[in-house]
Design a protein around this nucleic acid. Structure first.
Length: 439
RNA sequence: CGGGGUGUAGCGCAGUCUGGUAGCGCAUCUGCUUUGGGAGCAGAGGGUCGGCGGUUCGAAUCCGUCCACCCCGACCA
């Protein structure tokens, strides 16, 4: 992508309404634009990152055996009356009346709809286990939206629903998701720690929330420092082997972690030297809720014994749009965003530091063409700007690697390859720079 | 939902108290000079001052009303 043609409306100054760093940086980096309170348009750069995160979530859901569907944003109130939640959900649910006077709503979650799909088509234990998920926009009419996409009213969420004949099957599904969540967040360059959670209004009796460590997080967390040395991103799991899955869950549920509300220094059993205290952001939650929805909605299956039983369900959510903010909270400096490579909008940015210099232009254009051809997502700053402006902009938008092409280096035949995260700069020939990324 | 605050150019703000030609910085456009950490000079464009109503010869400014947005708290992917 050429920066000269890219719709990237960056801001030099901080918009006054943005208080937390991810919100400020997302606005300044031209990723989002507020449409109304808690509702955002996603501009090219932001949307690109959003889709990368979404894709990682999708791949890990698929790997864990879930199947993707897509349910609508607008739902009929009828199903919600059937489950009893139409009255229970309160003002957070956006209620709409259509032209015929029918009560509709903008879905805040999808238990009812997925259960309806399930009960229409599934009658036998033989179709189980089953996990269906979708990645769709939700709307919850928060009293006080804030923190940009971290706490919006409209948000993109992955919600997965599991269906099993009995409790043991449901726990298996729960455990698969537990493991897949560890891996999902790690693949985005995040440290997310599962913590025992209250089940809240959604109901049920087994739940963990996943909390990403970030200094600016909303809640305080305590955990065993052993969490920091786990490599979940490269964890190889066979989800069909429940012994293996359960082993992983057992290992990590026994490793201490708790939010400050639940932390008990005396009872945690972690030596003081091993106990870390930090802040975190909730980015996902998993629940087992049994027959809470299947019973009222009559989602039943026949067992091998010919008995009809309501299915045991669980739900598993990941706040996809919130993750964009959470990643920035976890990874930035005073100059801007530092994207982990897995979710970065571009892998490499080529900065032509002197765009009216023939040598600089030839070298940077050549690098751009070859990197692009090699399938590397590359951004070239080909604008007629001063070097300082270009460097500041690239730092702001957080591309992990910058190749700086300037007359100073070209005199001795080199360009500079800069790592955004460490700030380390290595001089090398253009060919070597190309090989570093495209080999 | 309780408490507080703000709406003036794309962004950040002054002007409002004390009514009298709508301003500043950044950004944008043109030209020249410049080119390694957000350049300099010269010029230009851009605003029904959140909406509606009222007071007045005259309203960004005073009064009324509505709307939008933000912050703190209680609640949440």
């Amino acid at each position: 992508m050429r920066l000269s043609a890219y719709f990237l409306p960056t801001l030099r100054e901080n918009p006054k309404e943005a208080q937390i760093v991810s919100h400020r940086l997302m606005l300044r980096a031209g990723m989002i634009q507020q449409a109304s309170a808690g509702i955002y348009s996603w501009l090219p750069l932001g949307f690109k990152v959003l889709r990368k995160i979404e894709q990682i979530v999708r791949e890990e859901q698929d790997a864990a055996g879930a199947q993707e569907v897509l349910m609508p944003t607008i739902q009929s109130a009828d199903l919600w009356r059937e489950s009893g939640r139409y009255d229970d959900y309160g003002k957070e649910m956006l209620r709409i009346e259509d032209r015929h006077g029918r009560d509709m709503l903008y879905g805040p979650t999808n238990e009812e709809l997925i259960t309806d799909i399930f009960r229409t088509h599934v009658r036998s234990y033989k179709a189980l286990p089953l996990m269906l998920y979708h990645i769709q926009w939700k709307f919850r009419d928060e009293v006080r939206p804030r923190f940009g996409v971290m706490r919006g009213r409209e948000f993109l969420m992955k919600d997965n629903y599991s269906f099993d004949t009995d409790y043991q099957g449901a726990v298996d599904a729960y455990n698969r998701m537990f493991v897949s969540y560890l891996k999902t967040y790690a693949r985005m360059g995040l440290s997310a720690i599962p913590m025992k959670a209250d089940t809240g209004p959604i109901g049920g009796d087994l739940s963990h929330e996943f909390i990403v460590l970030a200094d600016t997080g909303e809640s305080g967390v305590f955990y065993d420092k052993a969490w920091e040395t786990q490599d979940f991103a490269n964890m190889d799991v066979n989800y069909a082997d429940m012994g293996e899955v359960n082993g992983i869950v057992e290992k990590y549920t026994s490793l201490y972690a708790a939010t400050d509300e639940k932390h008990d220094a005396a009872a945690c059993g972690v030596a003081e030297a091993d106990l870390k205290e930090r802040r975190g952001i909730e980015v996902g939650q998993i629940f087992y809720f049994g027959t809470k929805y299947s019973a009222p909605l009559n989602a039943v299956v026949s067992t091998p014994e010919g008995e009809e039983v309501p299915v045991h369900m669980g739900s598993y959510g990941i706040g996809v749009s919130r993750l964009v903010g959470a990643i920035i909270e976890a990874s930035h400096d005073d100059k801007g965003i530092i994207w982990p490579e897995q979710v970065a909008p571009f892998q490499v940015a080529v900065a032509n530091l002197k765009s009216d210099d023939e040598g600089c232009t030839t070298v940077s254009e050549d690098l751009y063409a070859k990197l692009s051809k090699a399938g590397i997502e590359t951004l070239i700053d080909d604008r007629d700007e001063r070097p300082g402006a270009k460097l500041a902009n690239l730092d702001l938008i957080g591309v992990p690697w910058q190749i700086l092409v300037g007359p100073r280096g070209l005199k001795s035949g080199v360009v500079e390859v800069k790592n955004r995260k460490t700030g380390e700069v290595v001089e090398m020939t253009p060919e070597a720079a190309l090989n570093k990324f495209a080999s």
